[in-house]
């Protein structure tokens, strides 16, 4: 299966691990990531204003490209996943936004939300299947106790992203189990890390990440995984005593599949 792949800016730069390991894992699992040639930044946060059109167009371009290829659109970064799915929902269900965006775009055929946006984890769960992945694991992460750190953007709003239960998600825990490790469920896994406030108001993210580490470490996790480069940054900058290592989920996947040291 071939997917139109939207890496997003961070994956080309500070979060190359998230991207590189995903590509290697995809090969091992038998699906192909075909990078969209001229993708543009999604903007990082979804423009919530109902009258904001221009800021949604970069997403529409990527979505329309995937449609033209007849492919589903795959992303890895929580923020890109969030923005693309929400803009796609607007294009499909909010006539006003859809009409105005199409007026700007001037496409031969208007884009009406036809593309299916999937997160890499959703492909693992819904298309490959965690059971299948477990079978392909060559280096099981036996004995590792891993906390899934979801953050906000990958889950909420649950009704539009339809990724998992936003208050009691399971996908990353099932993923951890498939890799042979033990998931640690802790209540702060879907609580905010402080997000973009860390640029100007660092205090909040220090407070938030301390709660996240205290909780996950308290419940016995010896590492966290995440899909979000901003969460990764904030967690890494934490000065909490309870700090434990944080990895991109794709790194552990590549490791378990035995493709961490790939050629690419």
């Amino acid at each position: 299966m071939k997917y139109s792949y939207y890496p997003g800016c961070t994956l080309k730069n500070k979060a190359q691990d998230l991207d590189v390991y995903a590509r290697r894992a995809a090969v091992a699992l038998g699906f192909e990531l075909e990078e969209i040639p001229e993708w543009q930044c999604c903007g990082g946060v979804y423009p919530m204003g109902s009258d904001e059109i221009a800021t949604k167009l970069s997403s529409v371009r990527a979505l329309n490209y995937a449609k033209e290829q007849g492919q589903d659109l795959i992303t890895l970064c929580s923020a890109c996943h969030h923005v693309l799915k929400r803009v796609n929902d607007d294009m499909k269900n909010v006539a006003d936004i859809s009409d105005r965006a199409n007026n700007y775009m001037g496409l031969d055929e208007p884009y009406k939300g036809e593309t299916t946006v999937v997160h890499f984890l959703e492909v693992l769960r819904d298309r490959i299947g965690f059971d299948e992945i477990a079978k392909k694991v060559v280096n099981p992460l036996t004995g590792k106790k891993i906390g899934a750190y979801y953050g906000c953007l990958v889950l909420r709003p649950g009704k539009i992203l339809e990724f998992d239960d936003p208050e009691d998600p399971k996908i990353m825990e099932d993923f951890i189990r498939a890799l042979g490790a033990e998931p640690v469920i802790y209540p702060y896994r879907n609580e905010c890390c402080g997000a973009y406030s860390s640029l100007k108001e660092g205090g909040v993210s220090q407070e938030r990440t301390k709660l996240i580490f205290d909780s996950s470490e308290g419940f016995g996790a010896d590492m966290l995984i995440t899909a979000c480069p901003l969460c990764m940054y904030n967690l890494n900058k934490s000065e909490a005593d309870s700090k434990i290592p944080v990895y991109y989920f794709t790194e552990l996947l590549a490791e378990a599949l035995g493709v961490k040291e790939g050629n690419s």
Binding site: C9, T10, K14, A15, C41, G44, Y196, L199, C228, L230
Partner: peptide
């Protein structure tokens, strides 16, 4: 600082 933080 990741690009995501800056653009956000």
């Amino acid at each position: 600082v990741p690009q995501q933080l800056l653009v956000s």
